[in-house]
Each structure stands twice: as C-alpha cells, then as structure tokens.
Design a protein around this nucleic acid. Structure first.
Length: 90
DNA sequence: CTAATGACCATTA
DNA sequence: ATAATGGCCATTA
C-alpha cells in the first residue's frame, strides 16, 4: 500500500452511489489533471470493496478497465442506476 | 539508477 | 465517426 493509493482511495471512497467520476476528475481533485493515468494505475491494484473503484470511468464516456473485467464493471454501475447505452455512460 | 508498463487524455489526421 | 500520437505520472522490473 503506497501513499499514492491512499490519496486516490480517499477521493474515490466519497463517490456517492449512482454517481461516477472520470479518472481526470479524480486527478484534478488531487491537484493535477495529468495524474489521470496514475490514478488508474492505483485503482488497478485495489482489491478493497470499501472503495467503489467501479464508479470511476473514462472521459470519453466509456467505462474503462476493471480488475474483474469491464462487463462486471458495467453490471455494477447499472445496478446502481447508472445508465449505460452501447457500452457508454449516459 | 534506467526503462518499460498501464483501469488515461487531448490533439491531430 | 475512427485511428494514431505524444505526453503525463506512479509503480515495477
């Protein structure tokens, strides 16, 4: 567990149910929007279900990756009321 | 130390 | 609309 992961998780942990943030938005909350890639890198290693890492998506509306597969990520989001059309948010 | 990798993003063609 | 490109940063080999 690195200090970077703690910073990322603290943001992601506060995402309400049914809401999503982009990797870039999370990066901006950390002070620098260029951290988007590193944010995904941290979430990739997360296996704690207390942090809803499935609520972080890409800026182009696609869901992005997931450690258990993108399909599972989509199902989780749909079960929370997030609308996904043709693999894209909204 | 360097180099490669990745759940990204904005720009360009 | 899609595809390629360059850049960004933390982690890992």
């Amino acid at each position: 567990m690195t200090i970077w992961q703690k910073r990322v998780f603290n943001i992601v942990k506060n995402i309400p149910r049914g809401q999503v943030l982009t990797y870039g938005e999370v990066a901006q909350k950390l002070g620098n929007k260029n951290l988007a890639r590193a944010v995904g890198n941290a979430l990739n290693k997360n296996r704690d279900k207390a942090v809803p890492c499935h609520r972080v998506v890409r800026s182009d509306g696609r869901v992005g990756g997931f450690n258990r597969g993108s399909a599972e990520k989509i199902e989780l989001l749909k079960s929370e009321g997030v609308k996904i059309i043709n693999g894209k948010i909204r």
